[in-house]
Structure formats: C-alpha cells, structure tokens
Simulated scan of single mutants.
Amino acid sequence: MTSYIVTTLVTSTSNFSHPTPGPLYARIRDELRTMIVNGTYQPHQRLPSESDLIKRYGVSRITVRQALGELEKEGLLFKIAGKGMFVSKPKPFQDLARLQGFAEAMSRQGYEVYNRVVGLDFAAGNGTADSDEPRQRLDLAEPERIAELKRVRYLNREPVSYDVSYMSATLGERLAKEDLPGRDFFLIFENQYGIALGFADLAIDAILADSEIAELLQIAKGTPILRVERLTHSRDGQPLTFEYLYCRADNFQFRLRIAR
C-alpha cells in the first residue's frame, strides 16, 4: 500500500500575518510555491487539504482552488482523485531573462552538470550551406575560418540538450585548450579572457528530433524537442557565438518573466 505524507499546518509561519498587496489567491499561490521550491513540501508529498487551507488562510474554497489550480498549471502540483494534491518532482529550469551559461544556472540549483564534447571542428562545413547562416550572423568574412563546437549537456547524468556552437576559429582554438567538459565558455570568456558579455538574441521553436539528435539525447526519433537559436554579443556589441540548442522537453524547461 502506498503511504502518503500529510503536512501538519503551522499557521504561525504563514505570510498572511503580514499581508501583501494582490489578489488573495495569488498570495496563497505564491506562498505555497515558495514552500515547494525551498523544500518545505517535498516531491510526492501531499499538500494540506482544501478544508485545511481554507482554515489556515481564512478564505473561500473558490480562492483556495484558484491558487491550487494555478500551481497545477505550472506543473508544481498534481492531483490524485480521492487523495488530494501532491507536489510534483520539479523540472530543472533556466531563466531566459538572464544571460548565463547552462552549468552556471544549474549549479545554483544544486544540480550536477557535465558536458560531453562531441566534436570541435575548424574545417568541415566551411563554405557550405550549413555554415552560411552562422558565418553571416557572426559577421565573418568568407576567407576566415569558423569553429564548430558540439556538446551534449548532462544534468544529474541524464542528457538534456545538444548544443552546436559557432565562433571565430581564433576563439575556438583558445577554447580547445580549456576544460570544456567541466566549464561553461561564458565564464571562460569573462574570467580568463576578459571578454565582458553584453546581450543575446534568442529565437525558440519546436522541431522533431532526427536520428542523430535522438541518439545523443537518448530519446526516440521524431520526439518533439525545443530548438533555441542564440546569438551572443560582447558588451561592445560584437557577435561572439551563434548557437543551436536542441533541448529535451520532458526533463528540462525554460522560464521567463514578462512585465506589462
């Protein structure tokens, strides 16, 4: 028989002792979300019942259900008929509102990160249709070589993305001497090369994984994945890297807060 953990209510810890502006359901939602993220409620732990939450916050059932419904839409909760609401196993995420490397973002969340270098090429693709867009986006003249770096990014030993990065051959040759399996090149740029990062242009779409990508990401061919196209500039506006990031959607997500 499956056992469920029922959380004891402690009303003295509620943020509602210090009311904040905003709809009641949003305040309940935000407090519960914080308790899920900080580990007060663990994955697969049962949340207090609707009746308990009504007593705790002194609100209506509709208000509680609206708060829980929003968290369910976010993927933080899941419902078991007749049992109640339970905390989902959280997906690792990267905030697209900040320009940061994958390992930089994931390490802050306590995840183990590893990069498997699939290839670093300075010749293949140059002068072909495959290199036309990267060359144009990086503003590289035709005689100048272009470097192509391919990596599979692992999170807790599970592949989450396949990254194909283009840059000038000069920059690629410097990176070839670095610890690429263990470090993000964003941090290498800033901390070792003194290149200040400025901004990145992003485009995101969904595609079906071909046989090569499917094998690298350990998914079935034809599985829907996210493709992120990213052009990163230095602080003075010079293009540094142009990338295609092919990301699994089942074990990773991107987040972005947009203000009106």
Rank of each mutant, 00 (worst) to 15 (best):
G75W: 09
Q45K: 06
L138W: 05
G69W: 01
V37G: 08
G84I: 10
A129R: 12
L71G: 01
F199E: 09
E74H: 13
R33D: 02
Y244E: 03
L226N: 10
A26G: 09
K91Q: 06
L155Q: 00
F185C: 06
S88L: 09
V152Y: 02
A26D: 10
T128D: 10
A129Y: 12
I5Q: 04
I195Q: 01
S14T: 04
A203D: 15
L149F: 00
T223G: 08
L76V: 01
L226W: 08
T20A: 03
Q192I: 09
L96V: 00
G75K: 11
V59G: 11
I28M: 10
R108V: 12
A67V: 02
R137G: 00
Q42M: 06
A249C: 09
D236N: 15
N126Y: 06
G69K: 05
R61P: 05
A129G: 08
D250C: 06
F78Q: 09
E229Y: 07
N15D: 15
R145S: 01
R235C: 07
D95S: 03
Y246T: 03
C247N: 11
R151H: 07
K221S: 06
S51G: 14
P159D: 02
N156C: 14
T128A: 03
I195L: 05
P224A: 15
P239N: 04
G172W: 00
G69I: 03
P224E: 14
D130C: 05
L138H: 04
E133G: 03
Y246M: 04
L120A: 13
K55G: 08
L256I: 13
R98A: 10
S168C: 01
R108I: 10
D179L: 04
K150V: 06
L99F: 02
P48A: 01
Y41V: 01
E50L: 08
N191S: 15
Q238N: 00
A196M: 02
L208G: 11
K73N: 12
S17C: 06
D139F: 10
R65G: 00
T13K: 04
S49W: 10
R255D: 13
I5P: 00
Q45S: 08
L32R: 12
A124W: 07
P43F: 06
R183H: 13
G194K: 07
L24N: 04
G39S: 10
N38S: 08
E229F: 01
P143L: 14
Y41C: 05
L180G: 02
R98D: 13
S211W: 09
I28C: 09
G101Y: 03
G82Q: 09
S131G: 11
Y111H: 02
Y41E: 05
M106C: 05
R174A: 05
T11H: 13
L149Y: 02
N191W: 13
T241H: 14
F199A: 09
A141I: 01
I258Q: 12
A203S: 15
S165M: 15
T241F: 13
